[in-house]
Amino acid sequence: MKSTTFPLNISPLNSIWQSSLGDAEHSKISYFNLNNALLDEVLRIQQLGLVIWSPDSDEYGLLLGDLQNVCGWSNDYLKNVGPEAFLSHLVSSSFKGLCSLIKYMNTYLMSISESQLPHFKAIYDYELIGKDGKIRRICQENSIFTLDKNSKVQYFLSCISNISNVKRDGKQHLFLTGASKEMLLEIDQLTNDCTELQLLTTRELEIAKFMGKGLQSEEISELLSIALTTVYKHRQNILQKLKMQDTNEALHLLKTLKMI
């Protein structure tokens, strides 16, 4: 699938970060001393990218892995142009959705206590246009790398992967964890409406994990010592809560968001 880049105004995204994170003093770091050849090779083998970036500065601290294969843009290009140029290659509908999702991400982040900050994680998806013109669906997993002297986020550490196999056309997702309450959000790109999806119960997640390993309902019933009809009911609940009709796609999404 091919497309052309869209002229995007990224100022709304920048203003979201800045208004939420404040104007705390920023320690400028051009490159972190984490260039590890073994880690870089492992990331390349696993087709992952590892990025350290600042939410209130147009710079990357570190880029490892083969980002050309992951997102369609080389490490050198991204290092030279910074996060602003990266955002300019988002498909326009994904950019709008990402602006909405980041508002929720910030609200959630600001509600977390200092002791919970190390456990914060935000996993979300978007569509990006590579240098070759192809559109890729990307999953980005953010955790906090450093805080400034006022305990505000200075740098995020992000793991980036290509999830084009997850067929969720017209939808974007955000899974937030770290606080006492987790959140799962879905954006409808056509209307830009954001819906908070009902989280799966511990039992439903357990059954989803077994399903993801290829176990049939009868096997799950026997393994958990519960009625077969109960397993069917849980499977139905999983689909209803995720607003899906296809079990495989539901499992793809749960795995992508690191929920199972």
Rank of each mutant, 00 (worst) to 15 (best):
L48A: 05
D40H: 04
S30P: 00
D40K: 06
N36Q: 06
N35R: 09
I29V: 02
Y31N: 08
E41V: 08
A37V: 11
Q47D: 13
L43Y: 01
G49D: 10
P55M: 14
L48R: 07
D40A: 01
Q46R: 15
W53E: 02
W53H: 08
N35L: 07
L50I: 13
L39H: 08
E41A: 12
Q46G: 13
L48C: 04
V51T: 02
W53G: 05
Q46P: 13
L34H: 03
R44P: 01
L50A: 13
L43S: 00
N35S: 08
D58C: 12
R44K: 11
D58G: 12
K28S: 06
Q46D: 15
L43T: 02
L48K: 11
V42Q: 08
V42M: 05
W53T: 00
A37H: 09
V42D: 09
L38F: 10
S27E: 10
I52T: 06
I52L: 03
L48S: 01
N35G: 06
L39G: 06
L34Q: 04
L43G: 04
I45H: 10
N33K: 13
R44V: 04
I29F: 01
I29D: 00
D58N: 15
I45L: 07
W53K: 04
V42G: 03
Y31A: 10
L48M: 07
N36Y: 01
K28Q: 07
D56Y: 10
A37R: 11
I29W: 03
S57R: 15
L39T: 11
I52D: 03
S54L: 13
D56I: 12
S30R: 02
L50F: 14
L48G: 05
V42E: 10
L43D: 03
N36S: 07
R44M: 06
P55G: 14
E41Q: 13
N33R: 12
V42H: 06
S27D: 09
L43R: 01
N36D: 12
G49W: 05
N36P: 05
Y31G: 02
L50D: 14
S27A: 06
L39V: 12
I45F: 08
I45D: 09
Q46F: 14
D56H: 09
I52N: 04
Q47T: 13
K28Y: 10
N33F: 11
N36K: 04
D40W: 05
R44A: 06
L34C: 00
Q47I: 12
S30W: 03
I45R: 10
A37L: 11
S54Q: 15
Q47M: 11
N36F: 04
S27W: 06
N35T: 08
Q47N: 15
D40V: 04
L43A: 00
G49I: 07
I52A: 01
N35C: 06
D58A: 12
L34Y: 00
I45N: 05
P55I: 14
F32W: 11
S27N: 07
V51A: 04
G49M: 09
L39W: 09
D58S: 13
S54G: 13
V42A: 05
R44S: 06
F32Y: 13
V51F: 00
L50R: 15
S54I: 11
I29G: 00
I29Y: 01
L50S: 14
L38Q: 09
S27G: 01
L39C: 07
S54W: 13
L43M: 00
P55K: 14
S27I: 06
S30C: 00
S57H: 15
D40I: 02
N36G: 04
